[in-house]
Amino acid sequence: MLLAALVATTALTACGLPRSGPNRNELLAGVEQTAGAPFAIPVDDNVARITAYEPPLTFPAAFRNAGVLGPDTINAGDTLGLTIYENVNEGLLAGQGQNFAVLDTVQVDGAGFIFVPYAGRIRAAGNTPEALRQIITAQLETQTPEPQVQVRRLAGDGATVAIMGDVGGQGVYPIERPTRTLAAMLARAGGISNEPETALVTVIRGNTEGTAWLNDLYTDPSLDIALRDGDRIVVKQDDRTYIALGATGGQSRIPFGKPVVSALDAIAQAGGLNTNLADPRGVFIMRNESPEIANALLGRNDLVGAQRIVYIIDLTQPNGMFFAREFLIRDGDTVYVTQAPYVQWQKTLSAITGPVGTAGSVNNALN
Rank of each mutant, 00 (worst) to 15 (best):
residue 5 A to E: 08
residue 15 C to W: 13
residue 16 G to A: 13
residue 24 R to D: 07
residue 25 N to A: 15
residue 32 E to V: 01
residue 33 Q to S: 11
residue 39 F to R: 06
residue 39 F to A: 11
residue 40 A to N: 03
residue 50 I to M: 06
residue 51 T to M: 01
residue 52 A to S: 15
residue 58 T to A: 14
residue 59 F to A: 03
residue 62 A to M: 13
residue 63 F to C: 04
residue 63 F to I: 03
residue 66 A to Q: 13
residue 67 G to N: 11
residue 73 T to H: 02
residue 75 N to K: 10
residue 79 T to E: 11
residue 82 L to T: 06
residue 84 I to T: 04
residue 87 N to W: 06
residue 93 L to W: 04
residue 99 N to K: 11
residue 104 D to P: 15
residue 105 T to W: 08
residue 107 Q to I: 13
residue 108 V to W: 00
residue 110 G to L: 12
residue 110 G to C: 05
residue 110 G to S: 13
residue 111 A to Q: 15
residue 117 P to D: 08
residue 117 P to V: 12
residue 122 I to P: 00
residue 125 A to H: 05
residue 129 P to T: 09
residue 129 P to N: 09
residue 130 E to N: 08
residue 135 I to G: 02
residue 140 L to F: 07
residue 147 P to D: 06
residue 148 Q to D: 12
residue 155 A to W: 04
residue 158 G to L: 02
residue 160 T to A: 11
residue 164 M to T: 14
residue 167 V to E: 03
residue 170 Q to D: 05
residue 172 V to W: 03
residue 173 Y to S: 07
residue 176 E to D: 10
residue 181 T to Q: 12
residue 183 A to M: 06
residue 185 M to S: 01
residue 185 M to L: 04
residue 189 A to P: 02
residue 192 I to F: 02
residue 196 P to G: 03
residue 196 P to Q: 02
residue 198 T to L: 01
residue 198 T to D: 03
residue 202 T to G: 07
residue 212 A to T: 11
residue 214 L to G: 02
residue 215 N to C: 02
residue 218 Y to W: 11
residue 219 T to G: 09
residue 220 D to N: 15
residue 225 I to M: 06
residue 226 A to D: 13
residue 228 R to S: 14
residue 231 D to A: 09
residue 232 R to C: 05
residue 237 Q to T: 15
residue 239 D to L: 12
residue 246 G to Q: 08
residue 248 T to N: 11
residue 252 S to L: 14
residue 259 P to E: 08
residue 260 V to I: 14
residue 262 S to C: 07
residue 266 A to I: 04
residue 267 I to T: 13
residue 269 Q to V: 07
residue 271 G to S: 10
residue 272 G to F: 04
residue 275 T to D: 15
residue 276 N to F: 15
residue 293 I to K: 13
residue 296 A to Q: 10
residue 303 L to T: 05
residue 305 G to S: 10
residue 313 I to N: 05
residue 316 T to A: 09
residue 317 Q to D: 12
residue 317 Q to M: 08
residue 318 P to E: 09
residue 319 N to Q: 15
residue 320 G to S: 09
residue 325 R to L: 08
residue 328 L to Y: 04
residue 331 D to W: 00
residue 331 D to E: 05
residue 337 V to I: 08
residue 339 Q to R: 11
residue 340 A to R: 02
residue 342 Y to P: 00
residue 345 W to E: 09
residue 346 Q to M: 10
residue 348 T to F: 03
residue 348 T to V: 13
residue 351 A to F: 04
residue 353 T to C: 00
residue 355 P to Y: 03
residue 359 A to F: 12
residue 360 G to L: 15
residue 367 N to G: 15
residue 367 N to R: 15
residue 367 N to W: 12
residue 367 N to D: 13
